[in-house]
């Protein structure tokens, strides 16, 4: 049996306040390598807290979290940062691209802190951009790209370090429906190649593409599983 990508054992998060707010109730969770998981829930339910914890942007107040078998609770903050840079890829609703840098330079940025030699970065960035269908736009600036293209650049940046986990926060939130569908098709393709995907969304059209759906209500994690044949 392979090591799960994500293991939560009683992981919870309480903000000290005052008054203290229990944003995420202690929960157990395993996401296997290669799974495609959607996280849904209303605003204020704890989705962002879950995303921050799983993305190593925040630390749990209770429980233990293992990423790729590594107990992150035993890591220092710099080690958690290094692990985040190497093992997790982020895709944001607002793309977070550097407007003055080309698509290639934006993707290369992901390798800046991971020890990849400068000469190797351009080639890997070009490969990543080609894998998301942007081989013809490597020299384009984000300001000259469509929303879909920008999000593809962001996906390429998230994938270029070959992460264990691709975390997407409302990845289609700023896109029209046709472009959103194209991005979701891309995620399906990535899933088929074995990438582990966790997509936080409030859009059911996005959630139904996933193998598993985790619902968060009032800080409590629940799981729904879509039968493969029921997926649209």
């Amino acid at each position: 049996m392979s090591t799960p990508a994500v293991e939560f054992a009683g992981v919870g998060r309480t903000y000290p306040g005052p008054p203290p707010v229990r944003a995420l109730q202690p929960a157990d969770l395993i996401i296997e390598q290669g799974q495609y998981v959607a996280v849904v829930g209303p605003s204020g339910s704890g989705k962002s807290t879950f995303l921050n914890l799983i993305g190593l942007l925040d630390t749990p107040t209770t429980g233990r979290y293992r990423l790729d078998g590594i107990d992150v609770g035993q890591l220092s903050e710099p080690q958690r940062g290094a692990l985040r840079g190497r093992r997790i890829g982020f895709v944001f609703q607002a793309f977070h691209l550097m407007p003055h840098r080309t698509a290639t330079e934006n993707v290369m940025l992901a390798m800046l802190y991971t020890g990849v030699q400068h000469g190797e970065r351009a080639a890997r960035a070009a490969d990543a951009l080609a894998s998301v269908g942007l081989a013809h736009r490597v020299a384009a600036l984000p300001t000259t790209m469509s929303g879909g293209e920008r999000q593809r650049v962001a996906v390429a940046r998230a994938l270029v370090n070959r992460p264990s986990l691709l975390l997407c926060d409302e990845p289609t939130g700023n896109l029209d429906s046709a472009t959103a569908t194209a991005i979701l098709d891309l995620f399906d393709d990535l899933h088929r190649t074995g990438v582990t995907l966790v997509v936080v969304t409030h859009n059911d059209d996005v959630a139904v593409r996933a193998q598993h759906v985790i619902t968060i209500r009032d800080g409590i994690l629940e799981e729904r599983r879509y039968p493969t044949e029921a997926r649209p």
């Binding site: 710099p78 940062g81 992901a110 802190y113 991971t114």
Partner: peptide
């Protein structure tokens, strides 16, 4: 973004 990408 840089912090997400691993920058200390």
């Amino acid at each position: 973004l840089r912090r997400c990408l691993g920058a200390r």
